[in-house]
Design a protein around this nucleic acid. Structure first.
Lengths: 193, 193
DNA sequence: GTTATAGTGAAACGAGCGGTACAGAACATT
DNA sequence: AATGTTCTGTACCGCTCGTTTCACTATAAC
């Protein structure tokens, strides 16, 4: 009963997600979000309650549509060398494919790690959950190979992933090089089939 | 001729540096900076021109008093295994020594990488220069050991350093673990003397 | 002691922020 | 068609931001 919502929530959340991704939580103003979504702030507040509510929806969408697809291969039963190489190669291509004048966005959650997450406990937990999930996925795929120095290797690969996302916003070429290095490590640890 | 400045510029810059370190450039307000330095904004503007001018002075101080001392050992002629282990051990102790309720600050420049540096070219260059200097210092120290996979090893150690600084603000224990991992890598690559 | 110069403090500036009030528009139900 | 409910656009709220103004104070030079 009553008037129907005239916009599609999913597309609005994704537009907002890209603004937060590019500008950060504090850097994104309501005016920016209105412009990117094409939706008036009164409608945004009606649907999401607050700027923070919209941000939380954007983060949830980011996990579902960006992170999960990337980690799925690593998380599968029997994942191993091939899935690790695919993960780092695809991530490297994504970083390298960005035109130089486009927003260098990196990872929304890595960007949060030095921003919101430092003085906001819920945000900190989301970032930490992401790190844990990444480490678990890498560990799962590494379990298919030689059982040497597993903790150390998980940390090295997670570290290369995260710092590549950090550097994506500063030096895209070096970011890609870090991901190539990760792939090289995987090749050195895993015997080629 | 004229009235003399009543505050010490160095201590004021360092107080401001700590505020920027903790809160970030955008997150630090003039009121915060006045409170931390004990200096009125009109005096800050007289001495530094703008908030950005004070920030630039804070970054310069950070390089001089925080980064340079840490990298000095790695940069010395003849640096090698011992200097690498000292670097990672000292950094790990610094991360672990922070009381849990104190500001988890990480690295001022790493914090900038996902903030200012993404839409401000001068800031981006400062962060990139720091990364270059870190890589060069690690390379110098690695040159004292076996000449295998040097590029890869430089990237791995730089990556562990940077992601440890990133995680210092999210999970101090894991941050310290990354730095231990780096030290383990050094031990594995370098024959013990 | 007078004067020119420079640092300091209080107050206020305009701009932009996140958030809200309210009237009107659009729909489901009756 | 009438009614009740929900969504939307405008216009505005109070607040905080970085910055500036200006009167006042303190010092160096003469």
């Amino acid at each position: 009963m009553g008037r129907l919502q005239t916009f599609d929530s999913t597309t609005v959340v994704q537009s907002a997600r890209d603004v937060f991704w590019d500008l950060g939580y504090d850097g994104a103003s309501l005016a920016d979000l209105e412009a990117a979504t094409g939706v008036n702030r009164s409608s945004l507040y009606h649907a999401f309650g607050s700027k923070r509510g919209l941000f939380d929806a954007a983060v949830a969408d980011y996990r579902d549509t960006v992170i999960s697809p990337r980690l799925r291969g690593l998380q599968a039963d029997g994942a191993g060398r091939r899935e690790l190489l695919a993960y780092f190669d695809e991530l490297r291509e994504a970083v390298a494919a960005l035109p130089l004048d486009s927003p260098r966005r990196g990872c929304l959650l890595v960007n949060c790690a030095t921003g919101l997450a430092t003085h906001d406990e819920p945000a900190r937990e989301v970032v930490e959950a992401y790190r844990t999930e990444l480490a678990a996925a890498l560990r799962n795929a590494l379990a298919g190979g030689p059982a040497e120095n597993t903790d150390e290797r998980v940390r090295t690969l997670a570290s290369l992933s995260m710092s590549a996302m950090l550097l994506a916003r500063v030096n895209a070429a070096e970011s890609a090089a870090l991901l190539s290095t990760a792939a090289d490590q995987v090749r050195a640890w895993f015997p080629a089939p």
